[in-house]
């Protein structure tokens, strides 16, 4: 315990030890709820996804290209759930 006072190091360690359920249990509100993903177990997929998402946004931020039509539909559903309405 005495080894580090760096919160980022500690919280990453904690996430590793306890899994995201407990980690987010301490944060509770306002977090996205996942039906199947588990931010701890699926960290590898998450990292991959973030690269994909940033690439897509860099090329087609409004998701208007024909190949991204499918994404746009589901993303808009997500946004509606967040209470922001379709963008």
């Amino acid at each position: 315990m005495c080894e580090t006072n760096d919160g980022f190091v500690i919280s990453e360690k904690d996430l590793e030890l306890r899994g995201s359920g407990d980690f987010f249990g301490t944060m509770q509100h306002g977090l996205p709820e996942f039906k199947i993903a588990n931010l701890f177990e699926d960290m590898a997929i998450l990292k991959k996804v973030q690269v994909v998402a940033q690439e897509i946004m860099a090329n087609d931020a409004e998701l208007k290209l024909p190949e991204n039509q499918l994404l746009q539909r589901v993303v808009n559903q997500k946004l509606e759930k967040l209470g922001t309405g379709t963008l």
């Binding site: 996942f34 998450l46 998402a53 931020a61 946004l79 963008l87």
Partner: peptide
């Protein structure tokens, strides 16, 4: 199956947030 579904769920969430930011 799980990989595919997790990929989709995380991707859509991430895209939604980034799109919100862009908007």
């Amino acid at each position: 199956a799980r990989t595919r579904l997790v990929f989709e769920e995380l991707l859509m969430t991430q895209l939604a947030l980034l799109k919100l930011k862009y908007y």
